[in-house]
Design a protein around this nucleic acid. Structure first.
Length: 614
RNA sequence: GCCCCAGUAGCUCAGCCCGGUAGAGCGACGGUCUUGUAAACCGUUGGUCAGGGGUUCAAAGCCCCUCUGGGGCUCCA
């Protein structure tokens, strides 16, 4: 907030015409105040973060000065022209009201109406202290300190029901436990134990494999996807969509990217997000780019009529979100400013339904995460009382995944959720990355007016489950990191078969076998397997090397022997060279792919016809 | 966002300390070779030394600013 303070003999104003759509209603068009301190105020964007805090600080500052010069009357005068970064009119009005209320017990407070073009006459006294300007910033949030006064407790819960309390400040309490290495690594990170770390390996890989790259012409954290990268991305998206729509029977929706900031619920959510949203101004109206799926979804569900008979209702959306993450924090695919996220929200009638729904999601996401062939650890964050009451239920979840979990017990409810969990991947340099998350939300439904009609005909608020498999881009990063980890431990680096951009490559030993190679490739392709043909004028060893560098899982070398014998020579990545008939190879691959998405090849089948991207 | 480091051919990098004609390998292009399980051979091409400014007779190099990337910190309702 910017304030211009003027000690005046008098101020006199007349409201002429409205300057905004909904100006403050007025009783008197004109008013005059004698012997007063006039505070011209501009409420700024940043004040929206903490309206009360700002109002309080401003009141203090004004009173300090009023006492010094000994005036009894304070006139608050809304004056937009002190700042170029104004708050929304609605918020500004609220904050000014707040300011007025804070001053009321301390002085005789008057205010000029908000949202009017006004003419005014002021007579400034002109003494040294009669003119003064102040900038008030929202007070620093004290959440951290509060957390310190009521710290969380941590324990490890094992699938057999054993509980091991741990103390993050004492590494010896968890370093030597007989639990999964990935969980120990997660706890180390949680405890802030730092290790020497290089750049994430996936950055080199994503470029070398022609998957994804930076786009310097865009903002930090916005990437370009090459065809091979896009095939992986689309496979992941299809997998998420199938899980939601086919297995969970979720309703698939789409909501806008852009939201008006003069809608109170949007403004509230955006303010909580603390300047980490993209803002833009069009025709004098401020917008924010969605940073989560909740905006449009909550709006849609608020308008929906839901009966208890229909619950639980699951809603799925796959959408881009935008977050203005700190530039220094955007490294490779770990954190982006523009990313793709599949979200599933479940609307439940009561806590019981919420819990069984939670378990169902847990089961599905476990299946999904296992399909990625990565190391991961699980952490629950839960209000202590809730945990104590539902221990058996927690155990039933761990039995599904058959892993121990870190459990953070929160002494009281600090967020809108009472329970959440994360699947955290461990990357090649020991860092952890949040992937899947499910949150049990007991508050938002009433806050946002998402109601269902119960048996008794009464409207009641839903229990909402928020869940996501995490950003698709981050998943790509972690799958690459896992490959790098395998390589470091002496195994062959590879992607899961279903995510490999090229699944089979056919290498004819000379151009004489090109037609035959094409024939075989098109047969394989008919089974929805991504296959290509290396028709370049290169030596066979060279083509094999290139295929291996691309991490292609199946390489077929085709020459006279194969054409005569009818048996193919198949080089399986990391395993060796095997004989297969075409049919047995196709059925072997199809079996491995089972129900995984089959995104078609979006490149020319002939290598010679492809541009090089990296 | 803050502090530190880096940016030289499409890619990986040398040259920079100590100012004096812009280098290599790979790739791409052309040719020879018709090839058997991780790099055939020969030739040609390739540069706003990230951008801008300054110092200097002379700047890839020294100084300043900006951009991009990396590391660390902070942040992650």
């Amino acid at each position: 907030m910017r304030i211009l303070l003027i000690h005046a003999d008098f101020i006199e104003y007349t409201a002429l015409e409205p300057a905004i759509k909904e100006p403050e209603p007025i009783d008197n068009k004109s008013e005059r105040f004698e012997e007063c301190l006039v505070a011209f105020c501009s409420i700024e964007k940043i004040d929206e973060e903490d309206p009360k805090g700002v109002a309080e600080l401003a009141a203090q500052s004004i009173m300090e000065h009023a006492n010094m010069i000994g005036v009894k009357t304070i006139v608050l005068y809304p004056y937009a022209h002190l700042s170029s970064n104004l708050a929304s009119p609605r918020m500004a009005m609220d904050i000014l009201k707040e300011l007025k209320n804070s001053l009321k017990p301390l002085a005789n407070v008057k205010s000029a109406p908000f949202g009017w073009y006004k003419s005014f006459i002021i007579k400034c006294k002109g003494h040294p202290l009669s003119e003064l300007s102040r900038t008030i910033l929202p007070p620093e949030k004290k959440e951290k300190k509060e957390e310190k006064t009521t710290p969380s407790k941590f324990l490890i819960l094992m699938p057999d029901g054993k509980e091991i309390p741990i103390d993050l400040s004492r590494p010896e309490s968890f370093l030597n436990l007989n639990i999964e290495p990935s969980l120990i690594q997660l706890i180390k990170n949680e405890a802030g134990l730092k290790e020497e770390r290089g750049p994430p390996i996936h950055i080199k890989l994503m470029k070398r494999l022609e998957l994804v790259d930076y786009e310097p012409a865009s903002d930090v954290g916005h990437f370009r996807f090459y065809p091979k990268g896009l095939m992986i991305k689309e496979s992941l998206e299809a997998f998420a969509t199938e899980l939601a729509v086919k297995e969970l029977k979720a309703l698939k929706i789409e909501t806008p990217m852009l939201y008006r900031l003069d809608e109170p619920d949007i403004a509230e959510q955006a303010a909580k997000f603390r300047e980490r949203d993209y803002r833009l101004k069009i025709d004098n109206r401020e917008f924010t780019l969605r940073f989560a799926g909740d905006f449009g979804l909550f709006r849609m569900m608020k308008d929906a009529i839901m009966s208890y008979k229909q619950l639980p209702i699951r809603v799925y959306e796959l959408s881009h979100s935008f977050r203005l993450e700190q530039s220094g924090e955007c490294v490779g695919l770990k954190r982006l400013r523009a990313f793709t996220m599949p979200d599933i929200h479940c609307f439940c009638a009561n806590l019981n339904q919420g819990l069984s729904e939670y378990k169902l999601l847990f089961e599905k996401y476990t299946m999904l995460t296992n399909a990625m062939e990565i190391d991961y650890a699980i952490a629950f964050r839960v209000v202590e009382e809730f945990y104590e009451k539902n221990k058996e239920w927690f155990l039933s979840l761990l039995k599904i995944v058959n892993k121990s979990a870190l459990i953070e017990l929160l002494p009281e409810m600090k967020h809108y959720w009472i329970l959440k969990h994360e699947y955290q991947a461990i990357d090649s340099i020991g860092g952890n990355l949040q992937l899947v998350t499910v949150q049990l939300d007991v508050e938002d439904a009433t806050r946002y007016g998402i109601m269902y009609i119960d048996e008794d005909g009464q409207k009641k608020g839903c229990i909402i489950l928020h869940s996501s498999m995490g950003s698709i881009e981050r998943w790509m990063g972690i799958v690459l990191e896992q490959a790098a980890k395998n390589q470091m431990s002496g195994r062959t680096p590879k992607l899961p078969l279903w995510l490999s951009p090229i699944q089979v490559r056919v290498i004819p030993v000379s151009s004489n076998y090109l037609d035959k190679a094409m024939e075989i490739a098109s047969k394989i392709s008919q089974s929805f397997i991504r296959v290509d043909v290396d028709d370049r004028d290169e030596s066979v060893p060279r083509k094999i090397r290139d295929a291996e560098m691309e991490w292609i899982p199946y390489i077929i070398v085709l020459g006279e022997k194969e054409v005569n014998s009818g048996e193919l020579s198949v080089r399986i990545r990391g395993e060796g060279i095997f004989k297969r008939t075409l049919d047995s190879l196709i059925s072997e691959i199809s079996e491995k792919l089972s129900s995984k998405p089959r995104i078609p090849l979006c490149l020319p089948m002939l290598l010679s016809m492809r541009p090089k991207f990296a």
